[in-house]
Computed example of a mutant assay.
Amino acid sequence: MNAIDRTPADLLRSALAADPGRPLVTFYDDATGERVELSVATFANWVAKTANLLQGDLGAGPGDRVSVLLPAHWQTAVWLLACSSVGVVADVGGDPGVADVVVSGPESLEAARACGGERVALALRPLGGRFPQTPVGFVDYAVEVPGQGDRFVPFSPVGPGEPALVVGGVELTGAQVVERALGDGDAGGRVLSGLPYDTWEGLSVGLFGPLTSGGSVVLCRNLGQVSEETLAKRVESERVTVSRI
């Protein structure tokens, strides 16, 4: 099977089989001081649990649309791969009013209430913490996901030609996501990204490119709050080969 005949979820499974212990996503939130490092195995486990939540508890399946109202964050990356695993379309920043499921951070809860389907809220707190009180009309991701299964099997096979992602109003199949990311990626590199996830560039640099190339990403939120000296030290300590800020 050629790389472009695969979905992002296929590539994650291949990465897991090849080297489960290597870093895949390292996340910094410079507003809170949080640093989280996820190996391929840890990331894949979060994806499996989230896919089980999405397919099982939320009842989503191929052809359904998930409005993703989340910033660049390690949990957002997990949700995007979970959507690919189930076969639903991840609509980044998409209208929740026409979505089957909405996934929202704390800053977009009011907009997310337009969704007539299932609503999931993410507190985006350090260590994957939950909301002090679950927002009315939502389920709290941090409460629901830990009890989900560690292995995921889709109810229906997910083909590379099926719609997988909408970003910037452009819809892409799983194969097109992989093909475009392959064209963008720095093979085997460690990329530091301060770009948001609401454009293809941000998604490619901050997730899909490193996944397709066998590399890894240092994903930074609120990077504007750090000094040039701190950033330089991070680049050195994380052994960054390419910075995109």
Rank of each mutant, 00 (worst) to 15 (best):
P154I: 11
A90K: 03
H73A: 04
D184Y: 15
G117M: 12
E229G: 11
V235F: 12
S85M: 02
G209A: 13
G117A: 14
P23S: 02
L81P: 04
V170C: 05
V242M: 09
G183V: 01
A60K: 03
A111T: 12
L203E: 08
G87H: 09
G185D: 14
A72W: 02
G183L: 03
G137C: 05
V143N: 00
G97V: 11
R151N: 11
R22E: 10
T173A: 08
Q75N: 04
L203S: 07
D198K: 00
V177N: 08
R35N: 05
R13T: 07
D91P: 06
N222K: 03
G169E: 13
W79S: 04
M1L: 09
V242A: 14
L223E: 08
L182T: 11
L12P: 06
P71K: 07
A99E: 09
M1I: 01
L80V: 12
E171V: 06
G94H: 10
V25R: 02
A142P: 13
C220Y: 04
R35M: 04
D29Q: 06
A3L: 14
R119Y: 08
V235P: 05
L195I: 12
R22H: 02
R125Y: 01
S39A: 09
T134I: 12
S216R: 11
D64E: 06
D100H: 13
G147L: 03
S39Y: 11
Y197V: 15
G105S: 15
L80H: 12
V136I: 01
L203M: 11
E110V: 14
Y28P: 06
G93W: 14
A15D: 05
V78C: 08
